[in-house]
């Protein structure tokens, strides 16, 4: 096998071990809090279930079996995507997540892309003009947005742009007067584009801008700071000095020579920004009444819907592990000097 294949296999084995630990932690917590089969059954079907229903769940889930059997069952369940039945919709958790997750992903991906664009440019400028007024201004701005709670950013945007200026809708996913397009890919925005349903597409895009910008404002500081630091590093290299001495204009040195090289570490931090945005989406979807997985999580929380929250937690954990692997591979592709170990 090539070294890349070996590396990928080893990382995937590592990921599975980490996931097993995560399952063990959640399993232990659940069993510490619910030591009896009845208490366990209440976790899976809700506190208001009848004794008969609880009995049925104990039978169906094998909650009266020895602990190690339950543990193995739980591992099999997580790996096969069986997270139980959602107590609100009475549907499998995975089916519910499949409905809401695409909305959140299109929001979070848009937010991360906006954050990357803002972060890379502000960071490059700040780094290239280190210790000038521009540098200080950019640093103050990102420190402030970074220190803002995500909900405050969202509320301010909603107040100014939606309520005061009336430029964009304040709440919702799409204007309810439009009928949704037939699902082709399961991604609503993409489906609308594929079916040339432009009114629906535009309406959805307009509803996406404010929450996505809120997410971007919260997380771009991460990217700006890293970009600034690597840019300072790169600007001190010999090939930059050569470029300056060749008489290249400043703009060309900064954007063509320095920025391209400073971009490499950004790949890793993009995953972190993505992870931050998924967490931020919980609050931001609540404020904008954007009905995605984040909004649904808050609903599940109020209804003590254990299976959905735990299922969502596992799915987020697995996706971030995969994203990290992809980032590390990309890193090696972009910068061939880096060896995968």
């Amino acid at each position: 096998m090539s070294s890349v294949a070996v590396y990928i296999v080893r990382r995937i084995i590592n990921m599975i071990i980490t996931l097993l630990f995560l399952i063990a932690i959640v399993f232990t917590l659940i069993h510490l809090l619910a030591p009896s089969p009845y208490a366990l059954a209440r976790i899976w079907v809700g506190a208001r279930a009848t004794p008969q229903a609880l009995q049925a769940v104990i039978k169906a889930y094998g909650l009266d079996k020895p602990l190690y059997v339950q543990f193995i069952n739980y591992i099999v369940d997580v790996f096969t995507g069986n997270f139980g039945i959602d107590t609100m919709f009475k549907k499998p958790v995975l089916a519910v997540i499949k409905v809401y997750l695409p909305y959140t992903l299109q929001l979070v991906l848009t937010g991360t892309i906006i954050a990357l664009i803002i972060g890379v440019f502000t960071g490059a400028i700040a780094g290239a003009k280190k210790d000038t007024a521009t540098d200080y201004t950019i640093r103050i701005i990102y420190l402030v947005t970074w220190s803002m709670p995500p909900f405050l950013v969202a509320i301010l945007l909603q107040l100014l742009i939606a309520y005061d200026l009336g430029l964009l809708p304040a709440t919702g996913v799409v204007n309810p007067i439009y009928t949704p397009p037939k699902p082709i890919t399961g991604w609503p925005l993409l489906d609308a584009a594929l079916e040339h349903d432009w009114p629906y597409f535009t309406s959805m895009l307009r509803h996406l801008i404010l929450p996505a910008t809120s997410l971007a404002l919260v997380s771009f500081g991460l990217i700006t700071r890293l970009m600034r630091n690597t840019m300072i590093d790169v600007m001190n290299r010999d090939y930059i000095r050569t470029a300056v001495m060749k008489g290249l204009p400043n703009r060309s040195v900064i954007y063509k020579h320095a920025m391209r090289n400073a971009l490499i570490p950004i790949i890793t931090i993009a995953v972190l920004a993505f992870a931050t945005s998924i967490a931020g989406a919980v609050v931001i979807e609540d404020i904008f009444q954007y009905h995605g997985m984040g909004w649904f999580t808050t609903q599940a929380l109020f209804n003590l819907d254990y299976p959905t929250i735990l299922g969502f937690t596992f799915i987020v954990g697995i996706s971030i592990m995969v994203a990290n692997l992809v980032a590390d591979l990309l890193y090696a592709v972009v910068d061939p000097r880096i060896r995968l170990e």
């Binding site: 932690i25 919980v282 929380l301 937690t313």
Partner: peptide
């Protein structure tokens, strides 16, 4: 295992 999940999401799971 802990760090693979964004803090807030893990907090919600723990809270429930």
């Amino acid at each position: 295992a802990f760090l693979s999940i964004p803090g807030l999401i893990l907090l919600l799971a723990l809270t429930i």
